[in-house]
Design a protein around this nucleic acid. Sequence first.
DNA 1: CCACTTTGATACTATCTAGTATCAAAACGG
DNA 2: CCGTTTTGATACTAGATAGTATCAAAGTGG
Lengths: 197, 197
Amino acid sequence: MTGQRSLTSRGRARQQALVAAAADLFLAKGFAAVTVDEIVAAAGGSKTNVYRQFGGKEGLFIEVVEVLSAEFLSPLVQLDLGRTGRAAGLEILGRTLLRQLLEPRHIAFQRMILASSDLFPGLMARWLETGPRQSQAIISRFLGPGAESGRLALFFHDMIVTDPVLRAMMGETPPWDEIEAQIDAAAAMVARLLPQD
Amino acid sequence: MTGQRSLTSRGRARQQALVAAAADLFLAKGFAAVTVDEIVAAAGGSKTNVYRQFGGKEGLFIEVVEVLSAEFLSPLVQLDLGRTGRAAGLEILGRTLLRQLLEPRHIAFQRMILASSDLFPGLMARWLETGPRQSQAIISRFLGPGAESGRLALFFHDMIVTDPVLRAMMGETPPWDEIEAQIDAAAAMVARLLPQD
DNA sequence: CCACTTTGATACTATCTAGTATCAAAACGG
DNA sequence: CCGTTTTGATACTAGATAGTATCAAAGTGG
């Protein structure tokens, strides 16, 4: 028994404030470097909330990751590429994906996930599923059916994503021009191998 | 003054034992989860050594990273691909690289680096330089001069490395067959775009 | 308006662990 | 060998912080 039945409106507000404050702090400094007192100071209320509503610091962190994962869920899902050519479609997919991935908040999220994977086994696997795998699946679907599409989608994804994201995680986000050039080059490369337009 | 002039043979032995023990522990559990007492218990001697010879836990960690970085320095450097064809050469490069990268000890190393990057800014940048950048440069050199070689080398590298390494970090190392198939597909793809054999 | 439940503030406990101080034992060198 | 330096064992200090206990205040609902 957590000793709790229902939340008052004030309670719900505090809950959201806690998640929001915790998200900002965890993103900025990582799980270990943030103290519960600090979160409470930022959100208002008191430690009691954290322990009554989330069970503790780790519970709150898990909740934060859930919320952020939803926030970052591939923006590719709502993309309609009806009758675009192969190369042009890939270029759009690539730009849309990278614009999102390189958002400072997302870069911080990815850093946080990687840095916390020691303490939270399974976190990385979960992120891989809801993030990269999702994007790859959408690219693959655009390229059409067949195993070859899957492989090419994975290649395309890793070609355009890996390097810019790594550099951004180190604080050296590449200029957007350069990124577009990479995307276009990769798109042309892949399109040339699937010329069934 | 560290209050220390020279090391006796016993001292040197302890120093190495400390680095070795610390490396194993840090690789297994990450920086934060390892205590100095634990390292000392594994290496013999006493805490005094850690503080006199390395200045503290962080100093010892830095030393461990140095040693491990050297241990993992791209094995591609000593590879002679004199008169191999483009595709064949890329296949060899790819296999050599991945064989090394997927070693459990290296996967643990990469996890450790990523997980420690919050506490040790610059660590990731350093790793990127001595690891991936090095490999990419070697691939690029094999492909010949020109900016296009650089881009293709980066593409090839990220196509074959990103996914297997990520999966390995999550404990799901892909079967070697599959990896070879990916390498060969990527090599064929790249070779087709640079057909100046 | 009045029981009853949820929320808040605060002080406290318990634990963990990096780093230090101290003195004893071993190694070294002339 | 004997004085000096290096190494070792151990106990201790200091600081940080997750989690709890307690009671006061605010909401809530009949």
